[in-house]
Design a protein around this nucleic acid. Sequence first.
DNA 1: TGTACATCAGTGAACGCGCGTTCACTGATGTAC
DNA 2: TGTACATCAGTGAACGCGCGTTCACTGATGTAC
Lengths: 213, 213
Amino acid sequence: VKKPYHHGELRQALIDAARALVREKGSDGFSLSDACRKAGVSTAAPYRHFADKHEILDEVVAQGFADLTLGMQAAATVLPAGASARILGMGHAYLSFAIAEPALFRMMFGQKPDAEPDHLVVVRGKDCFGFVVQEVMSYCAANHVEGDAMLIALQLWTLVHGATSLTIDGDYAKISDQIEVGQILSDASDRLLFSLARRGEQGDQAKGKDHVE
Amino acid sequence: VKKPYHHGELRQALIDAARALVREKGSDGFSLSDACRKAGVSTAAPYRHFADKHEILDEVVAQGFADLTLGMQAAATVLPAGASARILGMGHAYLSFAIAEPALFRMMFGQKPDAEPDHLVVVRGKDCFGFVVQEVMSYCAANHVEGDAMLIALQLWTLVHGATSLTIDGDYAKISDQIEVGQILSDASDRLLFSLARRGEQGDQAKGKDHVE
DNA sequence: TGTACATCAGTGAACGCGCGTTCACTGATGTAC
DNA sequence: TGTACATCAGTGAACGCGCGTTCACTGATGTAC
């Protein structure tokens, strides 16, 4: 194969290379030079497409949020609307995403280096949480839950995010190798949801567990 | 003041300098050279007391866990034994610690750079979680809760850790500036604890909120 | 269809930087006799 | 109490390294006439 002078898809190729390198070496270990090596171009080439290193990483993070949203949507749509299993499935999708790309997950939710956040990243992040709120609202409507769906969504997010962080950072493992994150998640999620729902729906919600993951 | 050739307390001085620099610049921005500058010694001096850079940071992290445990103990002991407010107070102490030293908190619970974890760090970490389990067991005993105290402690830890991470990383703020982490935490913790406790104790637990933070 | 030329996406060499670590050294401390 | 000497905690200069970014450049593309 001959190597053409013009790459043609260099912008996306650099983003893909950056994401792969973040996955392999972590966000700290990532260097622009590495990404250039991987894409097969000189270290000056990226500056035709990006202002600096951070701009590439912002793009990676934005695509990460889009993928996370897609993952949760895929998990939700195969589960019955209004069931707590559907909410739980989204939580498992969140966890699975982070396990597949822990360093990317940390970049998405970790603090930025004091620079103001990228606009596209914020939009994608809000879309992602917006989907969670929407699903929680559907659940609440279907189960006649009185209460602020936003607050409930925040609590579930908090729980799932905690379980995810402690898993990918190896903190559960440092305490004991007997800990099952799936049990923690499903047990606590159900507890949070059940304590809200009115009587009569519980049998319906109690089945359908352990679908995903 | 004359500057003596021998520092005398250089080991602890370097640990203190490292902790201060991590607080100021983050764990990434921290360099051994910076710590030497701050302690007023040459860059070769640390090698009399530590094998390498990581050994200093391990020491900082271990002291961080000790401080976190102390903070939670201090919060717990001023609140009535057996009250849910006591458990909640520990959660707030966890959050306060992380807000005061976010970068240190991230080092404590973030993943290590593939090297095996330091022994002292693991011990201090287990001590810290052990205290939480112990307090949850007391709560369960006082409120006649049937259920695995370890699992309950894990769920509470997960929730509090999630709320703490999302707070210090600015993720709540990215969604909306109206979000109150205190409300999320106390609401969800109470819900997790109440759904376990038997009848009759609820009035006792419902007061005593909003003590700390 | 052919040619002139502007535009654009790459090259490759070089820069300055701060880092972690090593080296031979030197000044201070403390112990043996 | 005094002296010789081993030990130890520092110094300061140097190293090699990989990084992000800039520079003048060159090869390819595409458009005007």
